[in-house]
Amino acid sequence: MFSVVIPGRPCLTDIAVLDAQPNGQATKFTFTIPAQPAFNHLVVFLLPGTVLPPDTAAAIYLQSPNAKPGPNGPEFKFLGAIGNEKPSAIFKVGSGQPRRTEAQEEDEMLDEDTTRPLEAPNSQYVLGISIEPAQNVAQQMAALEASRAQTQSAQPSSSTDLVRMTPQAKQITTKTLAQRIIGNAFNFLASFAESNPNKQGEEVVPLKSFRDWWTKFERRIEMDPSFLERDEQV
């Protein structure tokens, strides 16, 4: 169903299935990736002919060789998602990086830097792919975007940057940003909710509606990067 490309390496197709539903539909997969030679980006994509179940998306997670231990083993970091309407995506390995456009990510892939500390020669990354309800993935995407916005706002600007000065500026917490992004998504997606024919009393939102919200949200961020920091944002 999926494949992975790392610049300078052969295409990865050796996928392991971890979980499947009673109907036999696999839902969780992993790729094991040697940490050496060093890399900063990877591409995850759906293989031709692959179609995800309706109202689902493929959430992408990464476990680094130095991942913090958790109650169920080393932690996986959420990177993003792909779906039927966006069957591939470029992800940057590492944390605390400002948001880049896909074109910028593609350019940087051709110039991999070696500034990151080298992992042990035999260490490995584990890339996890989980087919999840689109609404769950949308919440994770919103929280990820909030974290990126918080990181970006904390970075000092250069003297040539255009800075919008606001009176009595106040610090916005990551939790507040996440709540505002999720609220923005909920308000937009609520109008597209439909009754689930398979479960009475439950509503579902088409994945296309989430993609439409995401496009609109990114466009607004580009036009007004600070709108989430204002109390009157909608």
Rank of each mutant, 00 (worst) to 15 (best):
L42W: 12
K208T: 13
L177P: 02
T151V: 09
P225F: 06
R230G: 11
I33V: 13
G49S: 10
S191D: 09
A154V: 13
K208R: 15
F2L: 04
N40A: 10
F210T: 10
A149L: 13
G24H: 11
G83T: 01
I6P: 02
Q63D: 07
G80A: 10
L189F: 02
R230P: 01
P167L: 06
I221W: 00
T13C: 13
T101S: 14
G73N: 14
E132H: 00
Q135C: 00
N84G: 07
Q200W: 09
V4N: 02
T56K: 02
Q179C: 09
E132Q: 05
G73Q: 06
D224K: 05
S64H: 04
K175Y: 14
F210H: 12
A16I: 11
V5N: 08
N122M: 10
M223N: 05
L62G: 06
T173Q: 04
Q200P: 10
T56W: 05
S209Q: 06
P65E: 14
S88F: 00
A67C: 02
V44Y: 01
F192V: 00
G49A: 03
E108M: 14
S95F: 11
Q63G: 04
N40L: 08
R230C: 09
I60N: 04
V4A: 11
G201F: 07
L228C: 00
I129T: 07
G83N: 13
V5I: 01
A103F: 09
A120M: 11
N72C: 06
V137P: 01
V17D: 08
K68C: 09
E145H: 08
V5E: 11
T215M: 12
L110G: 12
Q25G: 01
K199R: 14
A38F: 00
A134F: 08
T151H: 11
T174A: 13
L127V: 08
K208P: 01
T174K: 10
P117L: 09
L110D: 03
G8W: 04
S195I: 08
P206G: 10
P98K: 07
T50C: 10
N23D: 10
K86T: 13
Q139P: 03
L12W: 04
S88Q: 01
L47A: 12
I182H: 00
W214V: 00
Q25E: 13
F76C: 01
K216H: 15
E203K: 13
F78T: 04
S157D: 13
L42H: 12
L79K: 11
S153W: 02
F186M: 04
T151F: 13
E232D: 15
I60V: 11
K28I: 11
K92C: 12
N72T: 12
L228M: 15
L127W: 02
P156M: 09
K199N: 04
V44N: 01
A59V: 13
Y61K: 11
D111P: 03
S123H: 01
E102A: 07
K86N: 15
G201K: 02
S130R: 09
D107G: 07
D224Q: 12
R9Y: 07
Q168W: 08
I82Y: 07
V204P: 02
A134I: 15
F31A: 06
M1D: 03
I181C: 08
F39I: 04
G83M: 02
F217Y: 15
D19Y: 04
P10S: 14
Q171Y: 11
A149R: 12
Q150I: 08
W213L: 10
A146E: 14
P197Y: 04
L228P: 00
